[in-house]
Every structure is written in C-alpha cells, then in structure tokens.
Design a binder for these strands. Structure first.
Lengths: 350, 350
DNA sequence: TTGTAGGCGTTATCAG
DNA sequence: CTGATAACGCCTACAA
C-alpha cells in the first residue's frame, strides 16, 4: 500500500464520497438512492457498487433538514412502569416503526411542567407528529397553543375543548359491563375506587357508575385517589376497614383492583364470597391474582396501534379534521366476582 | 391592518428572522443564544426581545447538522411490557433527559434482525450513543461491527468478547443468596426454572446454581425456556406434574416465579408448606402474589440509571476504556419460602 | 441522462 | 463587538 495512505478515516462517508468513487455527481447518487427512473442502468450499477464499497448510509439529519421532514414522532405517556401504558407504548412503537418512523420517547409522570418541556423538545427536534397521553392536570389552552402546527394524536384520555384526533376506550360501555355483571350477580351496594378526577377516563367511568347504579336502584359510593397500586392500597384499606363495606367493588383500573384483592386477603375478607371485586384494563397480572381478577378488557395495545394509525394517516395527508376512534371494551369474567352474599335475584355464574 | 398582510405564516421563525427583526446579523443572534460573553448588553437585549416576540426556538435538526452532535441517544430493549425492562427504561429515560438528551426508543423482541435494523436506524440518525440490552441470539462479531464508532453501553446482559462499557446485576451473588436462603430453610432438592440459555444472566444464574447446590451436597435440576409468563407456566406445569417434584424452586426471574406460584395453586400444592418458590428481580407484582413472592431484588431502574451515567461520561469524553459496573442484589424474604417439608436443619423465619 | 448550484437552519471562522 | 461567509450533508430544480 502507498505511503500516502491516510490514517484510518473514521468519518462516515458522505454522498460526495460516493459520487467521487463512482465518478459521477452527487445529484446522480441522490437520484439512484431515490430510485428515480431517470438514471442509466450502467451508471446506477457504478453508483451502487460505490455505495456498497463505502458502506454508505445517508445522513438522516441532513435529509431531515433538506426535506423538512424528520420521520420522527414524539410519544409522551405518563408512566412506562404502568403495564397499561407499557402495552400502549408497545402498540405505538410497533406501528410507527413499521411505517419507518422512529419514536422519541418520554414520560411525564403526570407532571404538566415536565410534559410541557418534553413537547417543546419534540418541537425543537421538529418531530413530524406527536402521540400524547395528556397528564392529569393539563390545561386545554396551553395544549392547544403548544401543539399548534404539529399534528397531535391524543390517546386514552381526552381533553375537553381540544378537537385533536383521538382514540379512547369506551369507558361508559366498560362501566356498564361492570355494573351489569355485578347486578346480575345480585349486588346492590357498590363502591367505585377510582383514579384522578382530572383524568377523563376516570370521570367517564364515574359518571356512568353513578347513572348505572341509580338506574338499578342500588347504592353507590365513590372513593378517589390515583390510578396506582399504592393509592389502591390506601383506598381499599379505608373502605374495607369500615363497619359495613359494600358487597361489590369496582376498581377504576386493574392496579387498584389488584391492590383491593390483596387488602381483602390481608383482612381475611373472602373474595368473592364476601366481596366481589372487578378491575379495569386487563393487564397481564390480573389473571394471576388469587382469585383471578374479573375485569373489563380495554385493549391498550390496540389503543396505541390506532393512535399511530390516525397520526400516520394525517402525516400522509389523508385526513384533516379531528377524528375520534373508540375501542369497545369486553367483560372478562374470572374468579373475583360472585353472587352477592345473602342471595339476591341473580343467577349463578352461568 | 394593511391589505398586503400575508396569510398567517405557519413557518417557524428562523434565526434569520430574529436577526432581521433585531437589526443584527445571524452570527450575533447565534452568539446571544450561546451566551457568549462577547456581545454588548444593549445588543443582547434587542436580540432577546426579538426572540421573545417571535417565539423563536432553534431548529435542533440544523443544530445537529452543524454541530455534528444530535444530543440523541438510542435505547433498545427486548420488551417494554416486561416490568423489569419497563423499570430499566424508566431509569435510562430519566437520567438521559435530565442530561438534556432525548431518547429514541425501540424494542427488539429478542429478534436479532430487528435489533440490527434498529441499530442501523440509530446510526442513520446519528445518535450520539446507544444503550443496549442485547437480544438473545446476538452474534458478537456483528455487534462489534455494527456498533463501531458509536459509543454503546450494554446493560443487564453481556456479550462475551465485546469490551463495551456495561452494567449488569451480580447474578452470581443473587443466586447464592437464593440458594443460601433455601438451604438455611433445610432444602436439599432444588430446581431452577430458567430463561434462554443464550442470555448471559441466565447462564450466570445457572452455573452459580449448579455450583452452590453442589457445595451444599444437594440435588439440583434445571429447566430452560424463556423469561416470560407463558414459558413459566409451561415449565412449572411440567415440573410440578411429576411424581417427585423438588421441595424448592428457584425461578430465573419473577415472571417465571409468579407463574410457578399460580401453577402450584392450580394444582393444589401449598406454597410454602409443600413447595418453596423464590423469584428474581422483584418486580412490583411479586409482593402481590398469594403468597407474596420471596425474591432477589435486582434494581432494574438502577441498572438503567448507571447505564445512562456510563454513556454520558463517555460522551463527555471522561472515559475511554471499557468499564464495568455491577449492581449488588438483595434478598427479599416474603411468604413463598418456608422450611423444607419433613424438617431439616434450618431455623424458622427468624 | 447527468451535472451544477441554491437552499434547509445553525455554527464557527475571520475579517473589519 | 459584529458582520460575512463557509461548512454540515442532502435534495431538487434547472441547465447542459
């Protein structure tokens, strides 16, 4: 080898290097990469072998700047340690990466200030779009302003007054399923242990709970906290520590339901003989409880997939007005619900 | 307003717009933003108010191209629906974003081909570094080649022959804790239900298991599958369906441990009276089992935090050789382990 | 069919 | 202290 051989050049090859090696211009290289028709087969071959020889990979940063499109989307969820959101994120990531988008990912921990910072970061990076699970105390006005001129798809929760694309679970239907199931088992005294009242899913479940119980002529009480195991423990503890707990507890999500079953066990309350418990979401751990948790399946991964689809549609220019897709929930009967103590009208487990 | 007023300009303002409005050059604006000392206070004020008036935010894409640094890091894990990795990801994301990095996130699903594609995508996007949990069947050579000239920190699992920075849990110590605890309870017949033999943590736990059991003069058998609930169910089913199951089962991770407890319950095997079960990791659901799962806590979030720290150190140019940090595990005794049936030497629960 | 050159938005180098 | 201007790497007219 010649003495002039440069020390190993660690710089990644650029389109200019390829052009030089192939003896063509950068424009031509760009054309073959774009698969443009207007390039002679012979030339194409030369360029392609130069690309292969150099191991050339286009610089996406430069591409983004030039094309004014990053093929990047921001995903912001409250937590990733919550299995519901983990599945949601999985759905988002799968769909987006299948469509050749990369996702820059962040968690807000229900903190609006953090949420604001992340969204600004997304903007700074010129993401093509954002998939967002709004944090609990989010102000509509701020969101509308912040999300201006970047396509946003809102998922799981909704923000009143913001007509962004969104996909949600049908919490009203889900809650009706839950109350209906319990009613059929003869229950008349219910409690709902819920998450943050600021969150739309919690509100929808709550109002439906109230209405459904009223229509039934039953009694219903409501406890509010947050959608976490810890809050579930505290709330269940308070509820089950009382003299006359209800015969059926509906949990605002499975974490709360799981905590409730655990508290009942600790207190020697037999589920489902003395107390029926039903959760919401159907996370993987619901069926592993003893007894296995009856719950309303919410299909979190599907939510994520649909959210990604909506966003991609918009990025492709297919749609322009605020769309709303609603995912229908399903009742999953397991072992944590049973006939109300003292009989009642209801049939057995069928 | 004048008739010539342009239709609302949705284009984000550029540094040139700011310069024009402030009546200075782009270079000066750049200097102001860089907080350079060499700018007259009066000028700075003018520029700053122009920035504020326009709501100017620098374009990170252009910055990246110019600075040759994206402040982006890629994070690739096998799954995010596995709570161990969810916590790991949380640690990574927290640390990195605190250091002003954004993370582009992906999941390999233990698929080496997918893993390859994601890493190439990371490269294409010119991430400054990557945090990687290697997929199960990863080839060293390919990784070494693919990861060339991009700082990589390997976390949780290790790839023999690759001297990248890495942070792992001390699986040998953890397994010794597990076997020691069981031995003290009088157990002599053990089984290990493990994950993929291709994964370094599984191998380390397995070899330590063999050695520890041998030193004890006990019997040990090994079942291999994958680190999932489903595999845990299948393996536990096979093991507990036999005539003479061991008195103590060590699970390669908590998902397997949780599945084992569930299978035991289904088969009417009392835990811990007839069978002791111990898990690994201490995911949040371990303590919610009935009985609560004794386990070895692995601190996944800490793994993520340390991995991020190692990478950041390297990106700051502080270190250059392959470093290794090992996180010490802790035994968490709960209710799924107890004295071996038929007595033995061991004391009670203390 | 292929080459040239301007533009994408910043940073950095140098004169002035 | 400030203003031009050349990178950074790629795309896309427009010319040739």
């Amino acid at each position: 080898m010649p003495a002039e051989a440069p020390v190993t050049d660690r710089r990644k090859p650029t389109i200019a290097d390829v052009a030089a090696k192939a003896g063509v211009s950068v424009g031509t290289v760009s054309n073959v990469m774009a698969n443009a028709a207007r390039v002679r087969p012979e030339t194409r071959r030369r360029v392609e072998s130069a690309i292969a020889a150099l191991g050339y990979r286009p610089n996406r940063v430069a591409q983004s700047l030039s094309r004014q499109r990053t093929h990047l989307v921001g995903a912001l969820v409250p937590e990733v340690t919550n299995p519901f959101f983990a599945e949601l994120v999985q759905g988002i990531e799968r769909s987006l990466s299948a469509a050749q988008y990369s996702v820059v990912f962040a968690t807000s921990h229900e903190d609006v200030e953090l949420q604001r910072r992340y969204i600004e970061d997304f903007h700074g990076r010129r993401v093509d779009g954002v998939v967002l699970v709004v944090a609990a105390d989010t102000e509509v006005e701020e969101m509308i302003a912040i999300a201006a001129d970047t396509p946003v798809t809102v998922v799981d929760r909704v923000l009143d007054g913001w007509d962004a694309d969104h996909v949600t679970g049908d919490s009203a239907a889900g809650m009706e399923l839950a109350v209906g199931h319990l009613a059929q088992l003869g229950h008349r005294r219910f409690a709902l242990i819920n998450g943050e009242a600021k969150i739309s899913t919690a509100r929808e479940r709550e109002s439906t709970f109230i209405r459904a119980v009223a229509e039934l002529g039953g009694e219903g009480e409501i406890s509010r906290g947050s959608f976490t195991l810890d809050s579930g423990f505290a709330q269940a503890e308070a509820l089950l520590g009382r003299d006359d707990p209800p015969t059926a507890i509906i949990a605002g999500n499975d974490l709360i339901g799981i905590a409730t079953i655990t508290v009942a066990a600790q207190r020697g309350i037999s589920v489902p003989d003395e107390l029926s418990v039903i959760g919401y979401d159907d996370v993987p751990y619901a069926r592993l409880m003893a007894p296995a948790l009856t719950t309303v399946r919410a299909f979190p991964e599907t939510l994520g997939i649909e959210a990604a689809r909506l966003l991609l549609d918009r990025l492709d220019g297919h749609h322009h007005d605020g769309r709303h897709v609603r995912i229908a929930p399903e009742l999953v009967v397991r072992r944590s619900t049973g006939p109300a103590r003292g009989g009642g009208l209801g049939g057995g487990r069928g």
